[in-house]
Design a binder for these strands. Structure first.
Lengths: 242, 242
DNA sequence: CGCAACGTTGAAAATCGTCAATCGACGTGG
DNA sequence: CCACGTCGATTGACGATTTTCAACGTTGCG
């Protein structure tokens, strides 16, 4: 009886994993730790060479500016790898804060490298995930740079949907979403007040309703069209491995 | 008599390269090609598995939106690697356009992998460069999300300075910069008109002057302070290899 | 109960974009 | 050589978007 971790589900979408590979992933989940909401798991500028796999709960990676404002770079949902600079070992310049109580598996960088040497297919799958994360940061940049506030919010909800579906935590009708409007604001480069107004507009236009920690798509097709959401950047089906 | 390529200079800043490693880099520069300004080198959505090393001239990588607007993700200067998805082989979702006539070295992905297998230190150095590129995209996101227009422009010039100095193309007093104000606008998420206003303000405040394809720092310290420029994200001195 | 955090709304102000016009530099065809 | 068109830079006026400030409601929790 195996309980499949979100990471295993996610990587399984990229490559059909063997029993042995699943076991290796399971072993990663041994050093289990929990962190409480709001208390930083990693501070900006802190030097760390081990990573965490988010098993339960949500977190954000962010950067603080000298004037006190905050820009959230990434929302982390179950199955995501946190705190690993994709390839080389170097100082993390991002802070990571849980937005709910979270459960993570701590992964020592050296262990990971060893596992990868023995399971190159696993290494490829993890690189695929990292490459996908990268594409998301780029799309995030595009969104902030060239979409108006309301479309930005709409696009954000659609991207999250795609990510959550991949780990079985969402459907095309909606998902659980423990983010506050302040967090949305810091992620989207807006003020919390304006995020509120955008949410109202999207609700009144019958597109999405975000209320009480849940996102409900009232008109999914309409929302996709409104936000000009093109999931191509997420669909790195790549060289499917069997 | 060896003419050192910008890429070799850049990687040399990370790891002291052996003669053999320099030779491998030289071999990369054999398949030399040129592209003219304005004609895309890579179209958005085009599938390619080989990369280019920019040897001379400038380019931009960008993403086009359905409404016709453009967001530039990255400015590419000599020594930069273009069109390589850092790790896995997948469809490029970014277009690349030369902003001047450029000279590049085409690198076949397979050749590169072979070289890396034989020269792990080179592989590490290239990964370092990729990681640095990544950090730049993140900082770019932060800039667009949380800095006002004028600071954004100022920060942009300072980042470019650091990048150009690394390949010997700039000093703390200024550098050659063939970008138009329209390109700056597409990179910074602004309109060209507003970029013009920001440039005037920076000039009148005695901080930087951008005119006639050249950036001149009138008050470098003042500009750093104004833009809240912290080059930490560029200083991945990492595990220096000897 | 009272506090704290989040959500909601309105009004005013700042920032930034759009439109329109002008100017100079440059290259091309006549 | 000159006329012309194009591209980029520049500026002003106006308008749209977004922020800020302020106030109030709601909810959950010690």
């Amino acid at each position: 009886m195996r309980s499949i971790s979100p990471l295993a589900i996610k990587l399984g979408a990229f490559a059909a994993l063997s029993c042995n590979e699943l076991n290796v992933l399971d072993r990663l989940h041994q050093r289990r730790r929990t962190f409480v909401s709001g208390k930083d798991l990693l501070h900006q500028g802190q030097s760390r060479s081990n990573a965490y796999v988010l098993a339960k709960g949500w977190a954000v990676s962010y950067k603080l500016l000298a004037d006190g404002s905050r820009q959230i770079v990434n929302i982390k949902v179950p199955g995501d790898i946190m705190g690993m600079r994709s390839n080389s070992l170097r100082v993390s310049d991002l802070g990571i804060e849980p937005v709910t109580d979270i459960e993570v598996s701590e992964v020592l960088a050296l262990d990971l490298l060893e596992d990868f040497r023995e399971n190159p297919r696993l290494a490829t799958a993890v690189q695929w995930a990292a490459s996908r994360d990268n594409a998301m940061v780029v799309e995030h940049l595009v969104s902030i740079g060239r979409r108006d506030a309301t479309r930005r919010v709409a696009h954000f909800f659609l991207e999250l949907e795609a990510r959550l579906r991949l780990v079985g935590l969402g459907t095309s009708s909606g998902y659980f979403c423990p983010l506050t409007q302040y967090i949305l604001a810091d992620a989207l480069g807006l003020s919390a007040v304006h995020v509120n107004r955008c949410l109202r507009k999207l609700r009144q236009d019958g597109l999405v309703t975000f209320r009480g920690e849940s996102v409900v798509f009232d008109d999914h097709d309409g929302l996709v069209e409104f936000a000009q959401f093109d999931p191509a950047y997420l669909d790195h089906t790549g060289p499917l491995l069997h």
